[in-house]
């Protein structure tokens, strides 16, 4: 039912940008504003080194958030992404003996399995996404700790380490991978049947089902993709850490990813996926934290600033929906 409750105050009366504009472009404007601010007031900010660091740090969040954006587009949410990262990290050292590729495949397969379980619980069993993925949020990390014997393991495999530190044409590999995945997801969402079906299912599930869309298959597929992306992020984060640390890797990652998606303008009510917005959302949160750290503000301030941005994003989305 339409919420008839609120009406945005006369958009035509004033030229000020309304909530619609903010949901569309607000995140880019905010990123630009932060860059300008830092260029003016923060020393050594606009240096190649610093920008590189920022991008390398944000890459895993971007990758996880891309999968999360797809899930949120179906009116769902995946809480298990952090645990999936840990699981992937825990499996890596066990198979690195066979080389990087087999170990990578195993880790990604584990992500796919986690996603398949989530997807089945949501689409076939019909659980609420929050509840369904909560199971593996808890269980996944437990399993990771069992697999790794609860221990932190140093990584010595040079191929994997190269993945974390190498670069191509001066751009770090992790950043390139995240960028390529973002392009791939954008293509998936906008140009493929699967992507359009994801959006349609998120927009009106009964209608999609009546139109003969393979609702269960698409939903499961979306969670599998999210799991795979999370596993990939886990591998890359491990490579950068040069150690497999299943007890803390990916902690709170689900929240960072959801934040990036929401701040990027994808509504939690489903029916739309904003890929570029998601990337910008992750960047915004990263830049914000970096800015505050560089100005020697305590962590608590950073958290409050993030909270304010999330509130603003949610508020803008609510205003927009209610017209």
């Amino acid at each position: 039912m339409t919420t008839q409750a609120t009406v945005a105050p006369g958009r035509a009366l004033s030229r000020l940008p309304g909530p619609a504009w903010f949901q569309e472009y607000g995140v880019y404007a905010a990123v630009a504003a932060l860059l300008v601010f830092n260029a003016a007031f923060t020393e050594h900010f606009l240096t190649v080194d610093n920008l590189r660091t920022q991008l390398v740090q944000v890459a895993p969040v971007v990758i996880v958030a891309l999968g999360m954006a797809l899930v949120i587009g179906t009116e769902g949410v995946d809480l298990s992404v952090g645990s999936t990262m840990a699981l992937a990290a825990a499996l890596l050292p066990l198979y690195l003996g066979y080389g990087l590729v087999p170990a990578l495949l195993v880790a990604v397969l584990a992500g796919a399995v986690v996603g398949a379980v989530n997807g089945t619980l949501v689409s076939v069993v019909g659980l609420q996404p929050i509840v369904a993925t909560l199971a593996l949020f808890v269980g996944g990390r437990g399993l990771a700790l069992v697999v790794a014997d609860g221990q932190l393991k140093q990584i010595a495999n040079p191929d994997l380490l190269a993945l974390g530190t190498g670069s191509f044409l001066g751009i770090p590999l992790v950043v390139l991978i995240a960028g390529a995945l973002a392009l791939a997801v954008a293509f998936l969402v906008h140009r493929t049947t699967f992507g359009r079906q994801v959006v349609a299912i998120g927009g009106n599930r009964p209608a999609a089902a009546l139109a003969g869309l393979p609702v269960k298959r698409v939903l499961t597929g979306v969670y599998v993709l999210c799991g795979v992306f999370a596993a990939l992020a886990g591998v890359l984060a491990t490579a950068r850490l040069t150690a497999s640390d299943p007890s803390s890797l990916g902690n709170l990652m689900e929240l960072s990813a959801i934040t990036a998606v929401v701040v990027g303008g994808t509504p939690l009510s489903g029916g739309s996926v904003r890929v570029l917005g998601t990337v910008a959302g992750a960047l915004l949160m990263q830049l914000l934290r970096a800015t505050l750290v560089k100005h020697d503000l305590p962590d608590s301030t950073a958290q409050m600033a993030q909270a304010a941005i999330i509130l603003a994003a949610v508020y803008v989305a609510r205003e927009r929906r209610s017209r």
Partner: peptide, 19 residues
């Protein structure tokens, strides 16, 4: 409830089943 996908365009709603 069972027909339109409100956020999608006229075009995408028409081709939804035929996609």
């Amino acid at each position: 409830a069972e027909g339109i996908v409100p956020g999608l365009s006229v075009r995408e709603n028409i081709v939804l089943a035929a996609m």
